[in-house]
């Protein structure tokens, strides 16, 4: 039996572009788990794959769009949310998931993130946060912890990192959750919830980057990082995202925000009906 034939028997095979596997990600990289959980969520929900669009940006996780067998767009640096906004507004029947990295979504793409959240465009944004720019060889980014070592912080990082869940909540996201690559079933459930909910949803996934970030910061192998997640993560639903800063001692995970708010599309539809009546 060829590898491809073996792979075809995987229960999630029908959601993947099989010929493109094995994927490019390193040993123990959390991106593979995010892909796995995302696809599992699609399976559980029985989502119509013809109506799903996955948009990704640049970086390791950016490749995710190319592994999922649906309409998918691997965009320019930082722009997946802006592009996804166009897709969603032009065809409201599509389900949109933006899956990208911390650098892509919050450095170069930070402006698009906050405005899409503010506008409450109906999309699910999943951020693989591995605390650095992995694909370009490990430079610091907007989530790199203070004092961490990267190729552009050779003497330690002196920039304060973003607390992504706080940022998302403040910008107006209707659903904000954080998990780690360890929380596979919870993450899957969270993705399912987000995909079923209307509005701008944000899920941060803390993800091991053993080869690039981990190596430079002596975090050991991916499995060590995963074990550390088990030790330091604390599930607190409804926790104030402002206080959920990630520290060496503790990562607060869970659903921080889950509210209802009319989406851009819904408000527009309402306006449309008013205009039609005039």
């Amino acid at each position: 039996m060829t590898v491809l034939q073996e792979f075809e028997k995987h229960p999630l095979a029908k959601y993947l572009r099989l010929e493109r596997f094995p994927h490019i990600w390193c040993e123990g990289c959390g991106d593979g788990i995010i892909l796995n959980c995302f696809v599992k969520a699609l399976d559980d929900l029985g989502i119509n794959m013809d109506k799903l669009v996955v948009v990704s940006g640049i970086g390791c996780i950016g490749r995710i769009a190319g592994y999922i067998k649906c309409d998918s767009f691997h965009t320019t640096h930082g722009r997946p949310i802006a592009l996804a906004t166009g897709i969603k507004l032009a065809n409201p029947k599509l389900t949109i998931a933006v899956i990208s990295g911390d650098g892509d979504l919050f450095a170069i793409g930070g402006n698009h993130f906050i405005h899409a959240a503010r506008r409450n465009v109906d999309m699910t944004v999943i951020c693989s946060n591995n605390f650095n720019y992995g694909m370009t060889g490990g430079q610091f980014g907007p989530t790199t912890p203070l004092d961490s070592y990267t190729t552009t912080t050779p003497y330690g990082n002196i920039e304060h990192p973003f607390n992504l869940v706080h940022l998302a909540a403040a910008a107006g996201a209707v659903y904000v959750a954080r998990w780690t690559a360890l929380h596979v079933k919870r993450l899957t459930e969270s993705i399912k919830k987000a995909l079923q909910k209307k509005g701008f949803k944000f899920i941060e996934v803390i993800s091991p980057c053993p080869e690039i970030y981990g190596r430079r910061n002596k975090l050991g192998k991916a499995i060590d990082t995963m074990k550390r997640y088990r030790q330091i993560c604390e599930i607190r639903h409804g926790y104030d995202p402002a206080k959920a800063e990630i520290t060496i001692e503790k990562i607060i995970v869970g659903e921080f925000i889950d509210i209802e708010k009319p989406t851009y599309g819904e408000l527009l539809q309402k306006q449309f009906l008013t205009i039609q009546k005039r």
Binding site: L83, T85, K88, H115
Partner: peptide
């Protein structure tokens, strides 16, 4: 809105250009 089309004022021109690409693919 009068012709059943979609207007969106984006946060900048980078986003505007990205959005029309997305819309076109939609």
């Amino acid at each position: 809105i009068e012709v059943d089309g979609m207007f969106v004022q984006m946060e900048d021109e980078l986003a505007s250009m990205a959005a029309i690409i997305g819309a076109s693919w939609a």
